[in-house]
Amino acid sequence: MTAFPFGPAIAAAIFIAFCAITGAGAVIAALSKRIIRGVCGLALCCIGLAGLFYFLNSPFLALMEILIYVGAVCVTIVFGIMLAEPEEVLEGESRRDALVWGSCAMLVGAAFFLALSRIGLSHPWIEPASRADGSVAAIGVALLTTYSMAFEVISLVLLVAILGALVIARTGRGRA
């Protein structure tokens, strides 16, 4: 395959590093007390996810992931945090309640994790005999031919979402 010495080993190490970044980001996003650290965790998770997309033969989606999630979604959430000051104070919940409900939520999460991994690992997936081209050029052609209707509808949805966001955020303004 490759003439570079230890090429697969280095690639596997980079892959494990990206998996660890994704997992660590998700844990920070779910567990951190301060909400701004949660956003940083989400950004970290998305960077790791972009790396995993690169390993899945899709550099286009890796770039889009960084562009849309880290560049747009996380920055927008940071603006929302600065405007709405969501301090997570643990008032009205005793230490025991926090422990009980925290472990309940942890249990539900663990059950989902085990069930999904079990389904994914034990299902007899069938590999296709032949595979079409999955390059960026093929994505561009597909977006403008097979999926052109969905593409247009998505752009309409985005337009309506922007207008709706402006309208909703504006209406309460007189009272402030």
Partner: peptide, 16 residues
């Protein structure tokens, strides 16, 4: 590997 990482992300999301 990818399916397990995806399941872990989903579990973190449910917990959060």
């Amino acid at each position: 590997a990818y399916l397990v990482v995806a399941a872990f992300l989903f579990a973190c999301g449910i917990y959060g």
